[in-house]
Amino acid sequence: MVIEQTYFIRGGDFSHAGDASSKVKKLLKQLGVDARKIKNIVIALYEAEVNIVAHAWEGMIRISIEADRISCTLEDKGPGIEDIGQAMVEGYSTASKEVREMGFGAGMGLSNIKRNTDVLEITSEVGVGTKVYMVNYF
């Protein structure tokens, strides 16, 4: 049995940043997933969701939940990441001044996602977009 959901994310729409993550959180609670695991998943997903809002023009989040895991694929149309290795470094950020003033873009995003997921794959093409694939086991 697999549960699949899709959420559309609009770039720059900070007031709705986090909506998809909270919907996923509700699903995981209904499935009785351990509270700490839910926390990890939702922190990672929220970071990735905010990345789309802050950097990309638009994006899609597809999640699929199975009995032992959740896989999330976040695909965006946006500027892409030039050097993924550097972007993973804590504190490194390309966020604009405006985004930072809103309290986002501290450069903790990707490293925070890494810390909270079991599998993380990031692929990106500059000028086209970024794809983040992450898996958490329950």
């Binding site: 049995m1 549960i3 499935l31 009785g32 939940i65 009995a67």
Partner: peptide, 10 residues
Amino acid sequence: ELDPDRGKAL
């Protein structure tokens, strides 16, 4: 929780 059993909950 929908069901204590994960499979059934799904």
